[in-house]
């Protein structure tokens, strides 16, 4: 157990946690906007996986930034289906969401296998280097634990206050909350309900796709079918725990990421004594716990999951 108390163990868990949290931060922030507007994207998993494959294929031809943006645009195109079918045509949000998850996993699996006849043909990107913050990165412990991230992670962290500001201080943010709480009242006040909901849903698609891109370009660097492994659903759990707050979503994403890194580091410490599978269950047990806590205290947008249809 002495090995558990080493500085390197905790540095690895915290820095790994921040890295693993990055895709969840992007995805959950976008989805927070969408859910606050009343649109539930069960298809977030689909946006993420399409974003991850697209970002890889574009990044190997161009560069990381363009790849990341392409991932976002691909996710947004998936969300466009959600907008067309659910926000506009009032098709059930959960059913369309499940379909988009399946579609995303199926499409990416198809494209990956068609373009990868042999394992040698698999496209790869190399790991991004960390960006040092002068001064801070040299602080003992914290420097390595918190300030050694690649730029995709830094951008994700920077997005949190920006998203909070947009949500709390702009007209768009206010409209988003209004159409999610009470679309009828919002419409009566002249808020274009369907347009605001569509924009928020597209934002979720874009940031979900960027999140998939962050997973690909910032972490794994190589595609495999079902790469996202339910991270889209984890983002949905994080949002409940956060009670639809942007800051809370970022914290929740870090909590899950931390325990993912923690359990994988623990593997080296207790190797042989505890089955690996039990350690791998830790982050999901944490997710279950935060889901339960979230359900106890959550205050959800009142119009969530209910399509808006204008009065005849």
């Amino acid at each position: 157990m002495d090995r558990l108390l080493t500085e390197t163990f905790w540095i690895a868990s915290i820095s790994g946690g921040l890295r693993l949290a990055t895709p969840l931060i992007y995805a959950s922030i976008g989805e927070t906007f969408s859910q606050r507007a009343g649109v539930l994207n069960i298809g977030l998993e689909g946006y993420m996986i399409v974003g991850s494959l697209t970002s890889l294929y574009v990044a190997v031809e161009t560069g990381t930034l363009i790849g990341l943006l392409a991932g976002g645009i691909a996710g947004m195109l998936m969300a466009l289906l959600m907008v067309a079918l659910s926000v506009r045509l009032s098709a059930n949000q959960v059913v369309v969401g499940f379909a988009l998850t399946t579609l995303g996993i199926g499409l990416t699996g198809f494209v990956f296998r068609e373009t990868t006849p042999t394992p040698q043909d698999a496209r790869r990107v190399s790991r991004l280097s960390e960006i040092d913050i002068p001064g801070l990165s040299d602080v003992p412990f914290l420097g390595d634990a918190i300030f050694g991230n690649n730029w995709i992670s830094w951008m994700g962290f920077a997005l949190v206050p920006i998203a909070w500001w947009c949500s709390a201080r702009t007209t768009f943010g206010l409209q988003v909350r209004a159409v999610g709480e009470d679309p009828d009242a919002a419409a009566a006040r002249g808020v274009p309900v369907v347009r605001v909901r569509s924009l928020a849903c597209l934002l979720s698609g874009f940031l979900g796709g960027v999140g998939g891109g962050a997973l690909m370009l910032g972490q794994v660097g190589q595609f495999q079918p079902f790469l996202t492994a339910n991270r889209g659903f984890i983002a949905l759990i994080v949002i409940i725990m956060a009670s639809w707050s942007v800051w809370g979503a970022a914290v929740g994403a870090f909590v899950f990421g931390f325990f993912e890194a923690f359990s994988s580091n623990l593997r080296n410490v207790v190797s042989g004594d505890v089955p690996t599978e039990a350690l791998n269950a830790i982050p999901f047990l944490v997710a279950l716990t935060i889901l339960i806590i979230g359900a106890r205290r959550a205050r959800m947008p009142r119009g969530l999951g209910v399509n808006y249809v204008a009065d005849r």
Binding site: A91, V95, L100, L103, I105, G106, L107, G109
Partner: peptide
């Protein structure tokens, strides 16, 4: 041809039904 195509078609059918069954 990758069997994932079946997943794609099944997802599209569900999308079609989501509207048809809205």
């Amino acid at each position: 041809i990758p069997a994932s195509l079946s997943d794609v078609i099944q997802a599209l059918i569900l999308l079609g039904f989501a509207v048809r069954y809205a």
